[in-house]
Amino acid sequence: METAAIQTHGLTRRFGALTAVEEVTLSVAQGQFFGFLGPNGAGKSTTIKMLTGLLEPSAGTIEILGQPFGAGALELKRQIGVVPEGMALMGRLTAPEYLRFVGRMYGLDMATTNERTDELLEFMQLANESRKLITDFSHGMQKKLAMAAAVIHGPKVLFLDEPFEGVDAIAAGMLKAMLQGMINRGATIFLTTHVLEIVERLCSHVAIISQGRLVANGSIEQLRVGVESTLPGAEQEQRLTLEEIFLSIVGAGGQQEPAQELSWLA
């Protein structure tokens, strides 16, 4: 049996009295494009932070590529690329300076770093902005740069926290093609986003987290079959979209209350 790219057992994170993530157990196979979904505040970013070593779990274990993962797993970190929630950019550097810095921090030699920096800047259409400080970049440009930094060392596992937020349609298309290319070459991608159309198009498997607990996990087709089987006969005839599946699952958890009328709004 092939080793899972990402494996968690009973992953839990508490902040004082609040349990942000509770007993999350999941497995992501190598070469899988995995979508991790959930409403706001469900625990997606907390989970991704724990999986990438940015946050210490309160309980549970994490294995990446079959090895236990913690803050000290430096060799394992070389196999991982991350676009975190805060993007990890350094505003006072230019894009090429930043990418060169990141490449060297991941242990690439100077020649390879330079070569990849140039290629990535061209690919991300940032080469013309090479003199501008990152702090002066638009949000979308910063996202593209964060993506470039996440892949410069050729990671085997890529964690993406809302990578398409603020990115224009042309760049988003380009990034999706790049990610699909990585999957085709055997990389594993763990993606969180609120744009369900993207997940539906790119991901083969999804997990849904709600109120810190994993409420669904499997291929999109498995989830669809599961949800459709709970619907009354007439409704089973239409093929459900991921958005409908998501709303059905999360709504079933009692989150989805009918919106009340705000009488004072125009």
Binding site: E97, F101, T117, D118
Partner: peptide, 28 residues
């Protein structure tokens, strides 16, 4: 040619951090 200038040619993280520090200091 490669974009942007280089201050230190060392590949290691120490050279990388020092180069980054120089650039950041000059802009702060």
């Amino acid at each position: 040619k490669s974009v942007g200038g280089r201050l230190l040619d060392g590949s290691g993280p120490i050279a990388a951090v020092i180069e980054k520090e120089v650039r950041t200091l000059l802009r702060t």
